[in-house]
Design a protein around this nucleic acid. Structure first.
Lengths: 131, 131, 131, 131
DNA sequence: GTGGTCTAGACCACA
DNA sequence: GTGGTCTAGACCACA
C-alpha cells in the first residue's frame, strides 16, 4: 500500500503532491491496475490533511483515467504508467544509484543532483530535436 | 544571462518558479557570484508576468542570501550553490546524458525517468542512513 | 454574459449543472472564445450557491480545455464547441421550435417531448450503426 | 420488458437514473398500465447495481403513483404518462428522426443537438408566456 | 464504511 | 478584486 508524505514547504499544493506520488508509483510499477489506494479516511489518519484535499487528489487521478472510485469499496488503480519492463527498470535504477554515489562523493547535495538531472533531461531533449 | 520560463499548469507559484530556477542555475554553476540577474523590466519583457511577482522572487533570493540588490544598478549574485567543481560536474552530467539515452531506448518518458531518479535518490539516502 | 440557473430537484449536482450550461452555451455559439464568464463572486450574487461549488465547475471547465482562469482578471472562454455554422443552426433551431409547437398542440408536455427527442437520437444512432 | 442502463459518469444518482428511465418509457408509451417491471433480481442480473439501489428506485416510483408493488408477484405499472396518442407520437417521432438526420449532415454532434433542443423548448416556453 | 457533494470561511498568489 | 488552496464539518448515495 502506497504511503503518502506531504512537504509543506515545497510550494506545491498538497493535493498535487498526492497526485504526483501516485503517478510516480505507477511509473515505477509499484502500483498496478487493480491495486487499491488507501481510503480517504486512512490517508487522513496517516498524514495530517483534510479529507477534502485527499478527495480532490483522488478526483484528479480519476479524471486522468488512472484510478476509479467505487462507492462503498474504495479507490482502485485503473491503468499503469510504466512503459519500461521491471527488469530493465531495475538495471537503470541500479545505474542511477551508483551515479548518485559518485555525485555524493564529489560533494553534491540532493538539490544539486536534481539540478543536474533536470539539465541533462533538457539537454538530451534538445539533442533529439536537433537530430 | 539566465532565461526564465513559467509553467502555469505546474501548480507551483510563479515567484517560486523564478526562485527555483535561479537556485538551479547557481547549483549548476551557470550563475556565478558577481553575475547580474536580468532587471525586473527585462524579465517582464521576456515572459508574461507581473512586475510585482518578479520583485517578490528577487526579494526572496536576497532573503536567502543568494543575491544582492544594488540600488540603481540591478541584482547581483552574492554566493554560489555549486559544491562540485566544473570539471567533475561536466563528467557527472555526461554520464547522466548517456543514462538518459539508455532509458529512452528502453521506452521511458521524461516523467518516468524523473520518477526513477527521485526513487534512486531516496534509496541512496536510506543506504546512507543505514550505514 | 451567460446567466446560470440551478434546479435543485433535478438530481444533477450543482457544479455539473453549471458545467453543462456553459457547454450548452458554447455549443449554441452563445459563448465564443475570448468571452468572459461571470466571476465566481458574480455567480454567487446572482444565484444562491457557494463560491467553492462555482469554483469547482470552473476548474472542471478548465480541465476540459474550454476555459482558462486568469488570476486577478477572471475566467475566459478558450475554445468553441459549435460545429454548426450560425446560419444553419438558426434554420435547424427554427424547425425544432415549429416541431415543439406541433407536439404541444398534440398534448405533449416538456418531459414527454424530451423523451421523444432522446428516443429519436438513440434510434438515429442505431440506424447509422446498422448502415 | 424495459432494459435499464446506468451511466456512472453522468453525476446523476443511480436510483434516479432508473426512475427517469421508467418515466421516459411511460411517456413514450413503451410501458403501459398493467405492464410488469423486471424484478429487483432481474435488474441486478442485467446491470451491475446493488439491490438496495433498485429497491429505492421502485419505492420512489410507487411514491409517485406510477407503479404498484404486489407482494409475491412483482412491480406493475399503475398509470401512464403518455398524453399523446400512439399514432400522433409516431408521426412526431418520425419528424424528429428526420430533423436529426439534417442536423447530423450539418455537422452537429449529439450534445449539440440536445443543446439546440433544450434551447428550442425554452424559447417556445417564452413565446407561450408572452402570448 | 466508503466515496461524492456542498456550505462556510480563512488565507494566499497575482494583476 | 479575482482565482486557487485548504480546513472543518454536514449530509447523501451506495455496497
Amino acid at each position: 500500500m502506497i504511503r503518502f508524505r506531504i512537504d509543506k514547504h515545497s510550494g506545491v499544493p498538497a493535493y498535487r503532491q498526492l497526485v504526483d506520488q501516485v503517478r510516480e508509483a505507477l511509473q515505477l510499477g509499484l502500483l498496478q491496475p487493480g491495486d487499491q489506494l488507501p481510503t480517504v479516511r486512512e490517508v487522513v489518519e496517516q498524514i495530517t490533511i483534510n479529507p477534502n484535499t485527499v478527495h480532490r487528489a483522488y478526483r484528479e487521478l480519476e479524471h486522468l483515467g488512472l484510478t476509479e472510485g467505487r462507492t462503498g469499496q474504495g479507490t482502485f488503480v485503473q491503468r499503469s504508467l510504466a512503459s519500461v519492463g521491471t527488469r530493465q527498470r531495475a538495471t537503470l535504477q541500479r545505474q542511477l544509484v551508483s551515479w548518485i554515489g559518485r555525485a555524493r562523493a564529489a560533494g553534491a547535495g540532493d538539490d544539486e543532483m536534481q539540478a543536474m538531472f533536470s539539465a541533462a533531461v533538457r539537454e538530451a531533449a534538445e539533442e533529439v530535436e536537433t537530430a
